[in-house]
Computed example of a mutant assay.
Amino acid sequence: MKTILDVKNLSVSFDVYGGEVQAVRDVSFQMYEGEAIAIVGESGSGKSVTAQTIMRLIQTPPGKIRSGQIFLDQQDLLSLSEKEMQKVRGNKIGMIFQDPMTSLNPTMTVGKQIMEGLKQHQKLNGKAARARAIELLKMVGIPNPESRISQYPHQFSGGMRQRVMIAIALACSPSLLIADEPTTALDVTIQAQILNLMKDLQKKLKTSIILITHDLGIVADICDRVFVMYAGQIVETGTKREIFRNPQHPYTKGLLKSLPRLDQDKKEPLIPIFGSPPDLIQPPQGCGFCSRCDEAMRICETVPPEQTVISETQSVRCWLQHPYAKQSGSPGSQEARV
């Protein structure tokens, strides 16, 4: 399989009044051509910052990339100038943002906003760009695209605006599409429509997709692999089958227990993850999830967990899964617990 995106040891921080927020801490992952992956986690876990850093949309200052490399088709994005990066955004990488109402320009027709990228990157003239824009609106399921191309964002519903955002992101047939919580502001029925649309477009266009979300429930049908983020780090990765059926990290298990299931007794209550994420101005010395974990051990407080390989496709950063912990049986002993 061809590697389309390779993120290596990425760390991003923000200077704020109280100090330096270490939003992303030593994140590494790869994705392959035509693959769909999900990056999941609570608000503040570093998902959106990771996506925005790939797009080079982090405002500097206050943000800064402390270390790392991001390769798209073997091209290091972090070494490009802003002018060079403008040729990548919307062309090789498309992005769907959380709220289409604030992402779309209210003073421009949707057609003009779609045609903007086509004219800049593909050098299409006005007539050809308009024809392509109508084709894209039809592709994403906008009815009467010939007339709606001349309308403004406020004349569209929330779901239709998100479809317009998808059309803009796909206009130049990017090799990578980043969807940053594309269904957050939509009701459940429209969520399903948008996810099915993305799934169909991935099959047709062979586009690689990164889905950023806090909801594990919406990734099961569209994604091949799942990366679980917590406190700015990837704590577990695996195929969707492994994550849903054999989660290894206590945080992943907590996320799954907080979701309703069709095979679950209706009287059985959902179990929330108690506590709050750590302050990333002063990140924990050991495991970031230690203070919220019922199975935490003494070592979890002071030593960052090593990466433990569970299978060829699954790995986890948790001392409970370390071979030494399993051999000694210490996770079950009272002395080992915090």
Score class of each variant (00 low, 15 high):
E306N: 09
G63H: 02
K326A: 04
T53F: 09
T252P: 04
W319T: 07
S333W: 06
K83R: 11
L195F: 13
Q113W: 02
P272L: 06
R225G: 14
N125G: 15
V309Q: 15
K83W: 00
T50E: 09
G94K: 01
M160I: 03
I209W: 03
Y230A: 10
I218M: 09
F244P: 08
R292Q: 14
L137P: 02
Y251R: 05
V24A: 15
P182G: 10
H249S: 06
L72Q: 05
Q69W: 07
P269N: 03
W319S: 02
R66N: 09
I168S: 08
I281L: 12
L5P: 12
I209M: 12
S333N: 14
L118D: 03
L57Y: 01
N91G: 00
I209S: 01
A192H: 08
L270F: 13
T213Y: 13
E306P: 01
R56G: 02
I281C: 10
I134W: 10
V49Y: 13
M85T: 00
Q30R: 13
P331V: 09
A36S: 13
I194G: 07
D215G: 03
V40W: 11
A129G: 06
G90K: 04
A36H: 06
D99I: 06
L262S: 13
A325D: 06
L216I: 10
V140D: 08
Q307N: 14
I212F: 00
E335W: 03
V16R: 08
P283M: 15
V24R: 15
F97Q: 00
F227P: 12
A231R: 07
L72E: 01
L211W: 06
C293N: 03
G117W: 00
Q75E: 12
D15P: 01
N105M: 09
A128Y: 02
A296I: 12
L176R: 09
N196S: 14
I39N: 07
G159R: 00
A169G: 04
G19H: 10
M108A: 08
Y324T: 15
G126P: 06
V303W: 05
R130H: 11
D224L: 15
I209K: 02
K112S: 12
Q120G: 04
F156L: 01
T60S: 12
K112Y: 10
M198S: 04
K123Y: 05
I234P: 01
G41H: 13
I210P: 05
I178Y: 03
H121E: 01
D180Q: 01
E33H: 13
S157V: 10
Q98N: 02
L186P: 08
R241F: 05
I54W: 02
Y230W: 11
R225C: 12
